[in-house]
Nucleic acid binder design. Structure first.
Lengths: 111, 111
DNA sequence: GCAATAGTTAAGTAAATGCTTCAGTGTTGA
DNA sequence: TCAACACTGAAGCATTTACTTAACTATTGC
């Protein structure tokens, strides 16, 4: 479910916007209401809700409404999925470089 | 330089597009020319070049032209920067959860 | 030289994105 | 009860994005 490419797509899409990353950043320090998320952002509450809906659709953020307050929190599993994608590609590249280094070292020995 | 928020912005922006992620994925397995990058993608070469320019501007990919061939490779440092941003937020959240768990355990002891 | 190759650039276009405002809904506290 | 509060949703709009085609430049191999 978390490695569903469509979900990964939504996640990276969600992380691409500075305002949404700022919201994730805020939430990494603890849960917050929509108003609290909106407070440092120079945009209408409505815009924040639209960003929030996208973050929720991507799986990065989970929210629950109690009374009239929607409380938001990070879903670390989703963050881990994005992290994992990047990490795999980087490691793949670095392992390749290592093998290349070994090969060069070997051929040097043989000279 | 790598933690420059503007650069981070470009990186996440670059990773948001499926075609560009596919290009990064391809490059994680080794260097490639523009044509080789274009080959599995259902779009014109011109479109690929535009994606590639974005990837290069973001710092995720480095390219060098020899003769008429532009060879592309991943810049792992940039990937690491994006990875790091996500990782920090996730850890911050998880540490918070841990502290909360400790607190709950303690108050339970006291009951 | 010259055709094929590899890539680049510009201009145009359709769709997606990131807002806005405004008019709601449901909740709470005095 | 009723005003303030915390959001929500729809419509509209300007900008950006992801392409396309077409014309172009620079290399290479014969």
């Amino acid at each position: 479910m978390l490695h569903d490419p469509a979900q990964l797509d939504l996640m990276f899409q969600a992380l691409a916007d500075p305002a949404r990353r700022q919201m994730v950043d805020r939430l990494s320090r603890g849960p917050a209401s929509v108003s609290q998320l909106a407070e440092p952002l120079a945009m209408s509450m409505s815009a924040v809700v639209q960003h929030l809906n996208l973050l929720e659709a991507s799986g990065l953020v989970r929210t629950q409404k109690v009374g009239r307050v929607r409380t938001c929190q990070i879903e670390p599993k989703a963050l881990r999925a994005a992290e994992h994608w990047i990490n795999e590609r980087r490691l793949s590249w670095e392992r390749r470089l290592d093998r290349l280094g070994d090969f060069l070292a070997e051929t040097k020995d043989e000279s």
